[in-house]
């Protein structure tokens, strides 16, 4: 039976396998791109979320927030000059895209030919689910706000028109 020193020597001289790593080159690009995709998801919801928070604070504390006012004034001017596509893109589409991107990263859809079944699995990952929740909420809140604003504006215009007709009578 080997003693401790002999065993240690045997361990030191142990021949070890060194597996090939040709696959290394294939994994490099996806690994180096992860930070970018994670960052994109955040940026798409961060900006609308920030503005939503400012608006909420303004409504709750009834304070004048010049930063938000200036921003919305600039946005209105920009939208009027460029056909009004920028605001819906920023406040509705971007958060929806962020939610969609994160949902896709959690979804796994496999078609099983033998059983003729479509197997859908959703992984539970906190940050992805968080971004889906935030993105959808931002889009819904902004969408709801836009629709109600539009309805209020329309009814105001209708009332104005009625008042004008009555005045003419």
């Amino acid at each position: 039976m080997e003693n401790h020193e002999e065993f240690e020597k045997r361990m030191q001289g142990l021949k070890k396998p060194t597996p090939a790593t040709q696959h290394q080159a294939y994994l490099k690009v996806p690994i180096l791109n992860t930070r970018k995709s994670a960052a994109i998801g955040w940026w798409l919801v961060l900006f609308p979320l920030l503005l939503l928070a400012f608006l909420g604070m303004k409504e709750i504390f009834k304070s004048d927030n010049h930063v938000v006012d200036t921003f919305f004034d600039t946005l209105t001017v920009f939208d009027r000059a460029h056909g009004g596509w920028f605001s819906p893109l920023l406040f509705f589409l971007f958060p929806l895209i962020a939610a969609g991107m994160n949902l896709l990263s959690l979804l796994n859809i496999i078609y099983d030919r033998n059983t003729n079944e479509l197997i859908v699995t959703i992984k539970l990952r906190f940050w992805n689910l968080f971004l889906i929740g935030i993105g959808t909420s931002v889009a819904l809140i902004i969408g709801f706000y836009a629709v109600t604003e539009n309805m209020i504006e329309k009814s105001m215009q209708d009332m104005e028109r009625l008042r004008h007709i009555e005045h003419l009578k």
Binding site: T18, P19, T21, Q24, L32, R35
Partner: peptide
């Protein structure tokens, strides 16, 4: 990211070998 790419090139096989062994 390029420097991290160099780190990846230099150490991937070592880390993979370690995990494999």
């Amino acid at each position: 990211a390029q420097v991290f790419g160099e780190i990846y090139d230099a150490f991937y096989s070592k880390i993979f070998g370690y995990a494999f062994r």
